[in-house]
């Protein structure tokens, strides 16, 4: 044994512990929680401005109130011992408070809110155009999916041959088309190419730009899938007497697809979202249609409606892709253990 003093021989800290019993951190105590809440309430009642066009002082009061209540809620939320229902209550109370502050003090014309943002008549007038736009959006999306899948698969397969010369060209393609913003690509294809005699209509340009861009990503995704299969797997399959095609079909592809699926779906979602960029080259897809309608009818309802439609289309898809991703991570974790 070394003569190092032994940590267990320190005097009993019983006293300490007893004293600590009353000494949970200040901000965690009931007194603080309720005291500061009351303080905030009193502050709000006393100082909140009564008139609507806000003075700088009034703005400061509101800012203080917002910061204070967020801080209070943060302290409350970070306490793991508080029951969940009280946190739920806090969250909703906070929402209601902010809603109220906004309602009371923004200069929005509340009486006209409905007619402005969810004006059913305006939407009814705009609807046929919006739906036409939706059809075009879907067409562009699906066409670009097809192009990018085929081109990407082709690039990935030729990349897998791992020939130095080919690699240079394929890497260059991938790098360039991942680096150019889609919108720039669209603009160049639509506005610049006609100068050298290649005239494409707006929709074809959009599809081509999206397809070329997303093919670069698809190529990388497929390559990742092919590389993710361990060499030992192929050797094991060959050792069992499977031929090349059987190895491919029974061992390689099933494993690669599991790796490829989540990012591939993510990529499809991304390029479907990017169809909105086609509006920059005057393709009347859904967003452009909404913009045109809102300008013509002088009412933002079509835009809001289009926003909601996009959410309805893409929230499920985004969910799907993150579920796939999560599932893959889990199975990988299992495989690692």
């Amino acid at each position: 044994m070394t003569q190092a003093t032994i940590p267990t021989r320190v005097p009993s800290r019983l006293q300490d512990l007893r004293e600590q019993a009353g000494r949970i951190p200040f901000i965690r105590r009931k007194e603080f929680t309720y005291g500061s809440l009351a303080g905030l309430a009193v502050f709000a009642v006393l100082f909140l401005p009564r008139t609507v066009p806000l003075t700088p002082a009034g703005m400061a009061v509101i800012a203080l109130l917002v910061v204070g209540s967020i801080a209070w809620a943060a302290i409350f939320f970070s306490d793991e011992l508080k029951p969940e229902w009280s946190k739920t209550l806090t969250a909703f109370a906070l929402l209601i408070l902010f809603g109220f502050l906004y309602y009371r003090y923004s200069t929005a014309q509340w009486s006209r809110m409905m007619t402005l943002f969810m004006n059913m008549e305006v939407i009814k007038v705009a609807l046929p155009r919006l739906l036409e736009g939706l059809v075009i959006t879907v067409k562009i999306a699906i066409s670009s999916w097809v192009i990018s899948t085929l081109l990407g698969l082709f690039l990935a397969v030729f990349r897998a041959f791992d020939n130095r010369v080919l690699n240079i060209f394929i890497i260059a393609y991938v790098d360039v088309f991942r680096a150019i913003p889609i919108m720039v690509l669209m603009v160049v294809i639509y506005f610049a190419l006609p100068y050298v005699g290649l005239t494409l209509d707006a929709m074809t340009s959009a599809i081509l730009a999206l397809g070329l861009n997303s093919a670069a990503y698809v190529a990388e995704i497929f390559r990742g899938g092919i590389m993710s299969v361990k060499k030992g797997q192929i050797e094991a399959a060959r050792a069992l007497g499977l031929n090349t095609w059987q190895t491919m079909r029974l061992v390689l592809l099933p494993q690669a697809i599991r790796v490829v699926m989540p990012p591939l779906v993510g990529n499809y979602v991304a390029s479907a979202k990017d169809t909105a960029l086609a509006s920059s080259i005057s393709v009347i897809e859904m967003m452009k249609a909404a913009l045109v309608e809102q300008a013509m009818l002088a009412n933002p309802s079509p835009l809001i409606f289009c926003f909601v439609l996009y959410l309805l289309m893409f929230v499920p898809l985004t969910r799907l892709s993150s579920i796939l991703e999560q599932r893959m991570k889990k199975s990988q974790r299992k495989a690692n253990v």
């Binding site: 402005l116 926003f307 959410l311």
Partner: peptide, 21 residues
């Protein structure tokens, strides 16, 4: 994550001003 960036920008730029923002 679901809303296209273009749509988000356009809504903020063209629709939110009606809300006083």
């Amino acid at each position: 994550r679901s809303i296209p960036m273009a749509v988000l920008m356009v809504v903020i730029f063209f629709a939110l001003p009606y809300m006083g923002i």
